[in-house]
Amino acid sequence: MDKELNKILKETGNRNPFTVPENYFENFAVEIDTKIGKDRLSVKKLLKPWLYLAAMFVGLFLMGNVFYAVYQNNRKMDADLYEMYVMSQIDQTVVLDYYPVESDDYE
């Protein structure tokens, strides 16, 4: 014990006056093992719904991409077809009249 302590403290001594219930430490260690086991399980359980949600979003994103690509393609095809249709309906002579006459032609 420390030199600094006087007679009273030396007489009292530094014995640990506290006690614990029987088998406390054996049971405590087992309790912590159980908690750790549950904790490991609960981490997996906690992650599972988030993983499902993330997978769902990835699926939706990919499907969205496919639908968008198809939609864009259809729109382009429609526009091409409409142009062809309009051109087929116009009288070619009217079209020729519509085009501006080159300035040389007036001379």
Binding site: F18, A29, D33, I36
Partner: peptide, 23 residues
């Protein structure tokens, strides 16, 4: 970690117990 608990639980328990006093 289980080994760690068994190795240090007593020392830490007494360290805490002397401060909080109740078991």
């Amino acid at each position: 970690f289980s080994k760690l608990v068994r190795l240090y639980q007593e020392r830490l328990y007494w360290h805490i117990r002397k401060m909080v006093l109740s078991h």
